[in-house]
């Protein structure tokens, strides 16, 4: 039972990342009708916002310690971060909490990147076939990741969570199991809560604000909303920025889980597209539901008992194919996905 709860927690956590990226993808597809293959790159840029703030906070003054030697035998250069020398413990605290603080840092950056991407490139492809959109956004993703690689190199960069949230939580005690039976990393739990807040916030924004109402109306019938004298294009551009900000924040918070590297967006991109297709193209609820569903299934498929069972029925490596297998089954039985709407991507 404890193993099942652990994998359930894992699945919710994986699903959080899938759902956040898929939510942004669906927002863009639902509003602008664009299949954005650069969305994974936005997730990656978000993670590198955390790396950048961490590096900015770590800018240091250099002093020479003649008593110690460096690798060439020269006197050792000792680096002391400016934040520490100026603000003491408060400065050290800021450095420790650089990842959560990066959320504030990333929002304006991601909004700006999203705005520039949409106005500068993607708007020219609205009336082009989806294949063209995929090609240009995929190309853009490669350009963005190469730019990041040129600045930060190809190696993963360690970006730790604050000390307070580095450890693990003992869910076993809370759930009535033995101590240490269900241990889960604190930061992953924070990530799940964060994803729930962001997803809830996006839905509330669309559901309970006038802006959101207009956007939803535009998603349902763009032409009619335009005929009412509303500048729907401007609102959709803002939604693109919002989707970029969601992907960026998801990336920021993911940085302590996987040390950021320039390729991390691509690692999520294909899975997130499967999530969107399974959820139903253009359906925000479907994207979130499919994200959690596939995250949980992927986690359970990694259990040794499950792998052994599928191995015994001549289906090895179920953990590697489960998402695609489920996608095939769902699309065979519900061709529009779990919550897909009629007429979307059917032209």
């Amino acid at each position: 039972m404890d193993a099942i709860i652990l994998q359930l927690l894992n699945g919710l956590d994986k699903g959080s990342a899938y759902a956040l990226i898929a939510l942004g993808l669906s927002l863009i597809f639902g509003t602008l009708g664009v299949v954005n293959f650069a969305h994974g790159a936005l997730f990656m840029i978000g993670a590198f916002c955390a790396v950048t703030l961490n590096k900015l906070f770590s800018l240091s003054t250099v002093t020479i310690d003649p008593t110690k030697k460096d690798f060439l035998g020269n006197p050792l250069q000792v680096k002391t971060p400016y934040l520490e020398s100026w603000f003491g413990d408060f400065g050290a605290g800021l450095m420790d909490w650089s990842v959560p603080l990066s959320i504030l840092f990333s929002i304006p950056i991601m909004l700006a990147i999203g705005f520039v991407m949409e106005r500068g490139l993607i708007k020219h492809f609205y009336k082009r076939p989806h294949a063209d959109q995929i090609l240009v956004t995929f190309g853009l993703a490669i350009v963005l990741q190469e730019i990041v690689k040129a600045f930060y190199g190809a190696n993963p960069i360690s970006t730790p969570a604050p000390d307070l949230l580095k450890g693990s939580l003992d869910f076993g005690i809370i759930l009535g199991f033995d101590p240490n039976a269900v241990i889960y990393p604190a930061w992953r739990f924070v990530y799940f809560l964060f994803a729930a807040v962001i997803i809830g916030g996006v839905f509330a924004f669309l559901q309970f604000t006038t802006f959101g109402m207009v956007v939803r109306a535009g998603m349902a019938d763009r032409e009619t909303v335009g005929l009412l004298g509303i500048n729907i294009d401007r609102r959709f551009t803002i939604m693109f920025g919002l989707a970029a900000a969601v992907a960026g924040m998801a990336g920021v918070m993911y940085a302590p889980i996987n040390s950021p590297n320039y390729h991390m967006g691509m690692d999520f991109l294909v899975l997130s597209f499967v999530v969107v297709v399974v959820g139903g193209m253009g359906s925000l609820t479907g994207a979130v539901a499919a994200g959690f569903l596939l995250g949980i299934l992927e986690s359970f498929a990694s259990m040794n008992e499950v792998k052994s069972f599928f191995q015994s029925i001549m289906l090895p490596s179920i953990d590697q194919i489960i998402i695609y297998l489920v996608a095939v089954i769902i699309l065979l039985t519900r061709p529009r996905g779990l919550m897909g709407r009629k007429g979307v991507m059917e032209d």
Partner: peptide, 12 residues
């Protein structure tokens, strides 16, 4: 990239 579902079974 995410090994959590492989690490979780190690615990018990």
């Amino acid at each position: 990239t995410d090994f959590s579902s492989y690490i979780a079974p190690v615990l018990n």
